[in-house]
Computed example of a mutant assay.
Amino acid sequence: MKRRERTRQLIELGGLVAKAGFVELADDDRAAIFGLLVEAAAKLRADETGNQLTLWRRRGRRAFVDAEGKD
């Protein structure tokens, strides 16, 4: 992956963290936000059925649709 593409990806991912409300909920505590992401990754690794990822994907898609309707 080229540097520009990676930079764009990282900015977009950071935007998702902010859009989800984690920055405000954690009072911009980066250790807490990182801990949340580490916990989610561990949960995905332990989920042999893939159900958790499917559930989160559905919730994310609904949240995107809801956010678009608020603009």
Rank of each mutant, 00 (worst) to 15 (best):
R62Y: 03
E39G: 02
E39D: 04
E39P: 01
A67Q: 00
G35K: 11
T49N: 12
R45S: 12
V17Y: 11
G15R: 12
D29E: 06
L55Y: 13
D28H: 14
W56T: 05
L36P: 13
E39T: 13
K43Q: 15
D71C: 14
F64D: 13
L13E: 08
N51C: 06
D47W: 05
R59T: 12
A63F: 01
G35Q: 05
A42R: 12
K19A: 07
F34M: 01
D47Q: 03
R58E: 13
V65D: 01
F34W: 01
A42P: 10
D47K: 01
N51P: 10
L44S: 04
L16H: 13
G35V: 03
E39L: 08
R45A: 15
A18V: 15
E68K: 01
D27A: 12
V38W: 01
T49F: 05
V23F: 03
R61N: 08
A18F: 09
A32C: 06
W56V: 01
A40S: 13
F22I: 03
R62C: 02
N51E: 15
E48Y: 00
K43Y: 13
A63Q: 05
A31T: 06
G60D: 06
V65Q: 10
R61L: 03
L44F: 11
G50I: 01
V65I: 01
E68P: 04
G60E: 11
V23Y: 11
L37H: 01
L36A: 04
L37Y: 00
R30V: 15
T54K: 05
A46S: 04
D29L: 02
L53Q: 07
F22K: 00
A18W: 15
A46T: 06
V38F: 07
E24I: 02
F64S: 09
A42M: 09
L36V: 11
G69K: 00
R45V: 14
R45L: 12
V17A: 07
A63N: 07
L36M: 04
A67S: 03
L25D: 15
F64E: 10
E48M: 00
T49V: 04
V17F: 08
R30D: 13
A41T: 12
L44M: 08
D27V: 15
L44P: 03
V38N: 02
K43G: 15
G21K: 02
V38M: 02
L55M: 13
V17L: 15
D47A: 01
A20W: 09
E48S: 04
N51Y: 10
L44I: 03
R61K: 07
G14E: 08
G69Y: 00
G69T: 01
